[in-house]
């Protein structure tokens, strides 16, 4: 089993605010790996750092052993990393089809693009129906489908997904997650999934990392993570919160 993507001691910051305080994680080829964490833990920052939107102050990001930190975002897309951004970020005034074509911007093989276009229309038939419509007019769920499809069109080896369930109904969330699993199985696309919906994420991923205030505090197989009492309490909400309603993870346990 090889690691297609590795982060070693990555530290990233927004101006003076340090968001990642030394993150180390690895993603096995062909797997689904998830990063769990609360708001502001730095989950999105991890993905933005991998995509080259943020350059890490320290540490390395490696794609198949080659260091890619500090490269331009378009170089990183060409190298095989696709990004489904948080909040979908479609091009609102372009048609659905043009949005998808922009996903394939880095490619020059028209035949391959046409084939992949058919493939994503097969995953999300509604997008074919809406192909000529402006993306801004789609519903939230459809925009999420578009964002996933658009990222797929760059034929990524690794797909970074930032909260695909954000703002979606439970039913739609389930559908989207089923497609994510299919993309992983059928196309062999490695997926790094960042989620607040720990329930769904632990169900479809093999390995999980728990991120708190910019640090990885726990890692295990998702099966075992789902059994841990802390995870059950704080991420799955299975045990009731304390008397004050809001108990903090930190008080509960000292990590390391």
């Amino acid at each position: 089993m090889t690691d297609v993507l590795e982060l070693a001691n990555v530290e990233s910051s927004y101006g003076p605010v340090q968001a990642l305080r030394g993150v180390t994680l690895s993603v096995h080829e062909g797997r689904i790996v998830t990063v769990l964490g609360a708001n502001g833990a730095g989950k999105s920052t991890i993905l933005k750092t991998i995509s080259g939107i943020i350059d890490p102050g320290k540490g390395q990001v490696k794609l198949r052993g080659e260091e890619i930190q500090g490269r331009s975002p378009d170089w990183i897309v060409r190298a095989g990393i696709g990004h489904v951004p948080e909040g979908r970020e479609v091009f609102p005034l372009l048609s659905v089809e043009d949005n998808l074509r922009m996903g394939a911007y880095t490619r020059n093989d028209a035949d391959g693009v046409a084939k992949d276009l058919d493939a994503v229309y097969a995953y999300f038939p509604i997008l074919r129906e809406r192909a000529k419509q402006e993306a801004g007019q789609l519903s939230g769920g459809q925009q999420q489908m578009l964002a996933i499809s658009r990222a797929l069109l760059s034929r990524p080896a690794v797909m970074l997904m930032d909260e695909p369930s954000l703002g979606l109904s439970p039913k739609l969330t389930k559908e989207i997650f089923e497609i994510i699993v299919r993309i992983n199985r059928e196309r062999g696309t490695t997926i790094l999934l960042v989620e607040q919906n720990a329930h769904m994420a632990l169900k479809i991923a093999e390995t999980g990392y728990v991120l708190e205030v910019g640090r990885i505090v726990m890692t295990d197989t998702c099966e075992r993570l789902a059994q841990k009492e802390d995870i059950r309490e704080f991420y799955l909400g299975i045990k009731a919160a304390g008397v004050r309603g809001q108990r903090r993870w930190k008080k509960k346990k000292q990590w390391r």
Binding site: P73, R78, P85, F91, P92, T106
Partner: peptide
């Protein structure tokens, strides 16, 4: 189209690999 895309959502344009 890429010029339009960049003007509509610059961040997403970066994610798509548009220079």
């Amino acid at each position: 189209v890429a010029m339009q895309a960049t003007s509509q959502n610059q961040l997403a344009a970066y994610y798509m690999g548009i220079p």
